[in-house]
């Protein structure tokens, strides 16, 4: 979801009209952002691609592009099975998608997103990938190893979100508690929470997805001290689309 918001933000900055899941059928190009996590999510992603291909066959669409985890994982097979799709992209190919639109990737737009959620809440992705080796999980195949975003960058992104009216942010990553180990050589989720809690106007900060092994207990202290950090821990792999 956040990936779609970043892509849309970049397209918009290049003066391209873009909407999330528009009910109107008057667009020229559709980009399907897919999930490849478990069987149900894969099925949903493939059905969505087929629906769009159908629209293209009926002449209601010019082009269908597919990106995200499913195409990262199965691109070879998919290209053969659904040749009507005009282009396939992996999870780390945002600049290539933009090129297809004759648009430039603008690095200065860090944190600039076209939100798909109502304006009062937003997801904030603090890291990508996972270093765990759980036997059942395909995420590392699609998203690679854990890469944390720097604290300053996340604070800047949160400030931008608040300026646009956001009051509640949900911190997400494939694995929150690992935050910082790659970038700072130590777990720094507690520092990040403190820095975000200092952002004026941010009323609620919510934490999703925390792996239990080597749980960093110091984050509980921050949770208790700071009023705007919700006393809430979750993993909501339910709509796995949120995970991707």
């Amino acid at each position: 979801m956040v990936d779609s918001e970043v892509l849309s933000g970049q397209l918009k900055a290049n003066d391209i009209d873009v909407v999330h899941e528009s009910a109107k059928k008057d667009h020229n190009i559709v980009v399907v952002n897919t999930c490849g996590f478990i069987d149900k999510a894969k099925e949903e992603s493939i059905n969505t691609i087929l629906d769009q291909v159908d629209l293209k066959k009926k002449g209601k669409l010019d082009k269908v592009y597919v990106t995200g985890c499913l195409s990262e994982r199965y691109r070879g097979d998919l290209e053969q099975e659904i040749p009507e799709v005009d282009a396939w992209f992996g999870t780390m190919e945002l600049p290539l998608i933009l090129k297809k639109f004759d648009a430039d990737y603008k690095a200065e737009l860090i944190g600039e997103r076209l939100l798909s959620t109502p304006s009062h809440y937003a997801y904030l992705k603090i890291a990508e990938g996972c270093n765990r080796t759980c036997a059942f999980c395909a995420i590392p195949i699609m998203r690679g190893t854990h890469v944390s975003k720097p604290i300053e960058e996340l604070v800047a992104e949160a400030e931008k979100l608040v300026r646009s009216g956001v009051k509640e942010i949900m911190l997400i990553a494939q694995e929150l508690t690992y935050y910082g180990l790659d970038l700072y050589k130590k777990r720094r989720l507690a520092d990040l929470m403190n820095a975000l809690a200092d952002v004026k106007g941010l009323e609620w900060i919510r934490l999703h997805y925390a792996y239990p092994t080597k749980f960093p207990m110091e984050i509980l202290e921050v949770m208790k001290q700071r009023d705007n950090i919700c006393n809430y821990w979750t993993c909501l792999c339910s709509t796995s689309l949120i995970l991707c």
């Binding site: 509980l220 821990w233 993993c235 792999c237």
Partner: peptide
Amino acid sequence: AEILDLVKAIRAEVPGICLRTT
């Protein structure tokens, strides 16, 4: 046993915390 200890420790530290799991 470690999971049980962890849940107890979290609840002792932050009483009333909402815990969700999958």
